[in-house]
Design a binder for these strands. Structure first.
Lengths: 201, 201
DNA sequence: GTCTATATCCAGATAGAC
DNA sequence: GTCTATCTGGATATAGAC
């Protein structure tokens, strides 16, 4: 009895993951409004009606994805900040890892695109907007704090700290979008190109 | 008689421009699917029904905007290539002008965002896809050709030419999206930050 | 030219059978 | 748990009055 319940729970959880992953692909490809519930259902090989056993609405799926996207992003930033590396090494490492992720991991660039889209769009659920408002600044601040340290010890160029942090993320974002568009054909650029915005030769 | 006809034509043309401009703002803000005809009509202070005197569908408006966006972009690129400047000066100038445009011209960043969105989205009219497929490569090629020249004469770094061109546009794109999100508060970064990806010190 | 009213269509969400 | 059928609402596009 309890056995069965647990097993069912587990199956349900797996199915939810599967739906999430398909929804992520579709939202990233077409945006929230243009993605129909039935598209997600078809991609997940279930009927439209059955979707509502797993999620109570399209928006709920979207919100959960936004939450996951920021969780992962912020977790990665916290981890980066805590590494025993010099500021310069951290920035270099961050660029390299982000580019590698973009090139190799399909989901990674989709999450990026999802955030980019969601951030750029008015037409998303209120709750998603709140998550964005609350979480969006952290990656900028994390990078800015590393850059500030690097500027103090002379290893990073003396441009305005916030401007550098903005250019860091907007460049990554731009590449993530490019990747999402060009798919598997995408080859990440040499990390040194981006790095040269921050480092003296 | 002919007088009146001409005048009417002129008024109609102006109204169409007005509608286009409002539609651009809304499409950039919310995307195609999430923008309702009635939103465009309201923003233009006309009834929903009247919209159809000016455009036969929402998609037609979208397609016209995409066409304009690429016309302007490509025209600007052609102009840049033809300037009597050294490759290095051209790149520097292009960065400065693009950043200035982004900061000062509302429409400019909206057109950027529109292209970014449209390029990133599956869910746009077939005809818009065709325009994108046909026109999208030109700016990349134009910048790549300038970079190649600069590499030949030693004024631009010897990274892969296509990678540099890609990073050029994706960085601008990323900033355009950032600007579209943050609106008037946006302040463009120092052009030298971006320039340092291309130039030796 | 402009509006209001309406036909039509499509997508989200629910109900109910199996 | 899963499906099909259906309700409901909202958006596009058209018709017709002024």
């Amino acid at each position: 009895m309890t056995r069965n319940k647990e097993l069912n729970q587990k199956i349900k959880e797996e199915r939810r993951q599967q739906i999430l992953s398909n929804a992520l692909m579709l939202f990233a490809q077409r945006g929230l409004a243009a993605t129909k519930i039935i598209d997600i259902a078809s991609a997940s090989d279930i009927s439209q009606g059955l979707m509502y056993h797993y999620y109570k609405s399209k928006e709920e799926i979207f919100i959960e994805l936004i939450r996951i996207a920021f969780d992962r992003m912020n977790e990665a930033c916290r981890w980066l900040v805590s590494q025993p590396l010099s500021p310069r090494e951290k920035i270099k490492f961050a660029i390299e890892e982000l580019l590698k992720l973009l090139e190799q991991n399909e989901d990674a660039s989709r999450y990026h695109l999802l955030i980019a889209q969601a951030t750029a769009s008015d037409a998303i659920p209120e709750e998603a907007k709140n998550i964005i408002k609350k979480e969006n600044t952290f990656p900028y601040e994390a990078i800015a704090s590393i850059i500030a340290e690097g500027q103090k010890n002379g290893s990073i160029k003396m441009y305005d700290t916030k401007e550098l942090a903005m250019v860091f993320w907007t460049s990554i974002n731009g590449l993530a979008i490019y990747k999402a568009v060009h798919g598997k054909k995408f080859k990440a650029p040499d990390a040194n190109i981006l790095a040269s915005m921050f480092f003296k030769e």
